[in-house]
Design a protein around this nucleic acid. Structure first.
Lengths: 232, 232
DNA sequence: CCGAGTGTTTGCGCCAGCGCAAACTGCGGT
DNA sequence: ACCGCAGTTTGCGCTGGCGCAAACACTCGG
């Protein structure tokens, strides 16, 4: 069973490749399904492969020696992940867990140079991805240093929604299940605080939230919330 | 005036190059001196060059729109920095300021592919650098989410000292001037808190500190401090 | 030697957000 | 239809660390 070219034809890393090249890229890949809440790879495991998310949403989680969990990011459809080896690592620095049922392409590390040779844009795109993530992570550090919890949560929601938002009659909805606990782990707070805040916002008509679901009903007001310059 | 090969011969990115190659690498570079507290490049500026620190210490600072400053990292001798273009950026995401008088090699962006061609290890080394920084930054996010201020500061000091520590009869000293404010900006706290903590530690004989100077007299005790599992 | 500037220390009051605990609710399974 | 669990809400008390402010101590230039 071979994979259809259309799966990857539209992605930035493979732009401008002809049918033959696309097939060659796919020839080395294996496609697999990960049911909700299963691990694609585990933190600390030997990094033998890298991945591309074809469908679904993936949560990248870091666990501290003390057992604390932090959500480093969510991976969206079409993104590379688990590219430890491109960063010169031999081991995955975090775990990847399917937030919903996912479809994933897997390449062995050995395919990395081949892909780069085949698709000149692939390497550049991958490195740009890493660079972008470094930026985002540094931005997160800034946020955590300088902003109040309220603003951090607002920012986090806006960020998610901008990447994985689904329009509904009520507003923009996060299109994968997300718990208060998840939001807390993204923003360095507790589920209690997140819950309180969301309740408050719901009261003000900014958001509408239910079990593992959040809908932003007034994005503009949330944006104001997100960067209301505090103190001074 | 040409640059001596020995300047870069020992660096990981240029390992195994012969004299001619090294000269070729240096031919494209310009060496310059940056006095203490001068900017090598400014956040937001067009990224036309990338840099290698030959001597000194450089502080990488991000400033938020509100004017808050955060120290993203310190660059040590022999490290690349300002490699925005390798990450697909056209603009520097942070400012680089000389913490002491520095000597810096500068290449125009155009030299990037040439260096990669000349020194196969160069590209890999650069990407590993970015990867490492991503790891470190993510680790910092975890730290800020899960640890108390006390531990974050201890960790920050240990990290600095492990990279830029100078042994003295009294202990290990940070070998560039660093203020309480700097430490606060690295750890997301205030200079007040840092000052109080350092005073307390000085009382317990863990550190010895003065104006823009910190000496770790009992690294082991500090390490205990750094990862004393808190609550539960 | 003096003054100015920069970095540091310290006291005090306060409050955002956490820890703990208990109750509640909606969903999925049998 | 029911039960059980996972996720959520909410109250309450406490405290770590911040904001503010004032005094202090080096160091450097003149």
């Amino acid at each position: 069973m071979s994979l259809d070219r259309s799966l990857i034809a539209g992605l930035p890393g493979f732009a401008g490749l002809d049918a033959g090249d696309l097939d060659a890229v796919l020839a080395r890949a294996r496609s697999s399904r990960f049911p909700k809440d299963t691990e694609v790879f585990a933190q600390g495991a030997q990094a033998g492969s890298f991945f591309l998310l074809l469908a679904g949403h993936i949560r990248v989680v870091r666990t501290s020696p003390e057992g604390h969990q932090v959500i480093a990011r969510y991976i969206n459809e079409g993104e590379l992940f688990g590219i430890a080896m491109a960063m010169g690592r031999t081991t995955y620095p975090a775990s990847a867990v399917a937030a919903v049922d996912c479809v994933v392409l897997t390449w062995p590390n050995a395919a990395w140079p081949e892909l780069q040779a085949l698709a000149p844009a692939f390497g550049a795109s991958a490195y740009r991805t890493i660079g972008t993530r470094l930026q985002e992570t540094q931005a997160q550090v800034m946020e955590m240093s300088t902003q109040q919890v309220e603003q951090r949560i607002a920012n986090a929601l806006l960020r998610i929604v901008s990447q994985s938002g689904k329009k509904t009659p009520e507003g923009i909805e996060i299109d994968f299940p997300i718990t208060r606990q998840d939001i807390a782990e993204m923003t360095g707070t507790t589920l209690h605080t997140v819950s309180r805040l969301l309740s408050a916002w719901e009261g003000e008509g900014l958001v509408k939230s239910g079990r593992q679901k959040v809908v932003i009903t007034d994005p503009h007001a949330l944006m104001l919330m997100a960067d209301s310059r505090r103190r001074k």
